[in-house]
């Protein structure tokens, strides 16, 4: 087990190192010079050269890369060009906001996904099962910007005015305001993920329900509710939990769109901000952070799976 953990950790580090080369390389290709971007078009060559020297832009590319990588690893993520602020506090705050969104949708997916999956599995090939399958299929086929916009029309003013359609309030200032602004983006994210969890739970419930120990439980006269909740669900949950864990990083990708629709200040909207403003250091740091979180989440999912399921043999 320890050697397995070490190897997975090693391969994650290699992956992230390669990712850093890719991210740095791609952003180096951006047209325009950073010093020029800061100073604007009307500037003497001397001023520009002085700034380039201060930013280290006159150094060879590989040294710039090493400086940047060293800074990123040690937590010095540089300064944003457009915001004229340290990147780290902004980025960490945005990460926290996105984490609220990601965690609430993961929670919702766990509750509704497993619930609907159990119902579908127990009512296999009956109308309820088909209905749930169609719902899941639609959820996965409809892009987030479509479902998000439709949710706003229906629940944020067009039909009913139940929730605010956009914005953010810190929970410490206005808890209800924070919660109501979290609901629509959470539902949008949930719709994307529900399908996997429903399918996963459904197939494992079906599989477990045909197992011998479930038949034994039924034969000894246990009520169906006990059979499903106590005997079947327990064993059916394992793959479901893994699917949920593996998708933590994936949710971080979807938040880009969802945060844009709902004007929610998270990591995703920060990426868009840096893209639209050509804020190079901000873009590099944010994208790297997304990569790190995704990688660590996937590693955690793998390890959790091995830990939870001793039957799995690892090479």
């Amino acid at each position: 087990m320890p050697s397995f953990v070490l190897r997975r950790l090693g391969s994650l580090l290699v992956t992230l190192l390669l990712l850093s080369v890719i991210v740095f390389g791609i952003t180096q290709l951006l047209p325009g010079n950073v010093a020029q971007m800061i100073l604007g078009p009307y500037v003497t060559e001397e001023t520009q050269a002085a700034l380039e020297q201060r930013l280290g832009l006159d150094e060879p590319v590989w040294r710039q890369y090493l400086t940047w990588l060293g800074g990123f690893v040690s937590g010095d993520w540089g300064e944003s060009l457009r915001l004229s602020q340290e990147i780290r506090p902004i980025l960490l705050l945005r990460l926290q906001n996105s984490a609220y969104l990601a965690l609430s949708s993961l929670l919702g997916v766990a509750v509704f996904g497993i619930g609907l999956g159990v119902i579908a599995g127990m009512r296999r090939n009956r109308p309820a099962d088909h209905l749930i399958s169609i719902f899941a299929f639609l959820g996965i086929s409809i892009p987030a910007f479509v479902s998000g916009s439709l949710l706003i029309i229906v629940f944020a003013g067009g039909v009913w005015e139940m929730f605010p359609g956009s914005g953010y309030k810190p929970p410490s200032e206005d808890f209800t305001g924070w919660l109501t602004r979290l609901i629509l983006p959470t539902i949008t994210l949930m719709l994307l993920l529900l399908a996997y969890v429903i399918r996963m739970t459904r197939s494992s419930i079906i599989e477990v329900l045909s197992a011998n120990y479930v038949r034994t439980a039924r034969l000894k006269g246990a009520p169906e509710r006990v059979v499903v909740l106590h005997h079947a669900l327990r064993n059916a949950l394992l793959p479901t939990v893994t699917v949920i864990a593996m998708n933590i990083g994936w949710i971080l990708g979807s938040v880009v769109i969802v945060e844009e629709i709902f004007a929610y200040p998270g990591v995703g909207s920060l990426i868009l901000f840096s893209v639209n403003n050509r804020d190079l250091p901000l873009l590099q740091a944010t994208v790297m952070l997304v990569g790190v979180v995704t990688g660590v989440a996937n590693l955690a999912a793998d390890l959790a799976y091995v830990y939870l399921n001793p039957r799995i043999r690892y090479r």
Binding site: L19, S254, G291
Partner: peptide
């Protein structure tokens, strides 16, 4: 490494 980034983020970059 390329798959480590969500596709929309990579496409954006």
């Amino acid at each position: 490494a390329l798959l480590a980034l969500p596709s929309i983020v990579l496409a954006l970059v």
